[in-house]
């Protein structure tokens, strides 16, 4: 279970998160919506341990463990995964090498043996085929020369290989056409399980037609200003964020 309490975070002296409270139980899918600049990506980075942020108040615990004490790799080993809004290109690091290194690093951290290469290859090929990630993409350096949509599919491939227990998807729908959106959503839905939680960050309702959330939150100016069921997303789609944003800003 993820528990975020009164989380305040600053970057370059500006307070971006201003008291976020959020509890995500195993098996739940929470959507976080909100206007551009409201702090959604910041929240995802702070959760996964990016160093540019100064946490001034509050706490993050996952399965009872204080996440703020852990580095990004330790959080990943604890089961967290962030699918980046803008996955970066890593020239010189072959995709396959990267996938294998990441998988085995996490297995090692959890006291498991390295996965034998043939088994690993088979696993990657199967999952890649599901997500329409071509063997040619797997031969390239990580994300290098991938289109926007290919990068997003590659993120979900990583997620399904690493089998995290907490998936954070930051605007995974942006830059995807309808077909790609369907493929990606199917990939995500396959991972739904009673043990696995998800935080789905999105600007638009359309992703939530495919990945149906249990809870929807509206983030505005670094705070969760409204929480509701999946119908809240529809309401936002119709009326925009203006209601919530103004309500709080006033």
């Amino acid at each position: 279970m993820l528990e975020i309490k009164n989380l305040h975070a600053k970057v370059d002296g500006n307070e971006i998160l201003r008291g976020v409270n959020l509890t995500v139980k195993p098996g739940e899918i929470h959507a976080i919506m909100g206007p551009n600049g409201s702090g959604k990506s910041t929240l995802s980075y702070v959760l996964s341990g990016k160093e540019d942020y100064e946490i001034t108040e509050g706490s993050i615990t996952y399965n009872g463990e204080d996440m703020l004490e852990l580095g990004p790799d330790e959080r990943a080993a604890a089961g967290m995964f962030l699918a980046f809004q803008y996955p970066i290109e890593i020239p010189g690091v072959a995709t396959m090498t990267f996938l294998k290194t990441a998988l085995n690093a996490q297995r090692k951290a959890r006291g498991l043996e390295e996965m034998p290469t043939p088994e690993f290859m088979k696993l990657v090929r199967e999952k890649a085929a599901d997500l329409n990630v071509t063997p040619e993409m797997l031969r390239r350096p990580l994300n290098v020369g991938f289109s926007g949509g290919e990068k997003k599919r590659a993120e979900i491939l990583q997620m399904s290989l690493l089998e995290p227990t907490l998936c954070i998807l930051d605007e995974t729908d942006s830059g995807l056409d309808i077909d790609a959106l369907r493929i990606v959503s199917e990939g995500v839905n396959k991972l739904r399980s009673p043990e696995r939680s998800m935080i789905v960050i999105t600007h638009y309702q359309r992703l939530l037609d495919h990945i149906v959330p249990d809870v929807v939150h509206v983030l505005s100016k670094g705070r969760i200003v409204k929480t509701g069921g999946k119908e809240l997303a529809l309401e936002l789609e119709k009326n925009g964020y203006a209601d919530f944003v103004d309500e709080k800003a006033a």
Partner: peptide, 14 residues
């Protein structure tokens, strides 16, 4: 640092 964070976020120690 961004490349480093990406790799670490996937569980690879620093």
């Amino acid at each position: 640092e961004d490349l480093l964070f990406y790799l670490r976020a996937r569980g690879i120690p620093e």
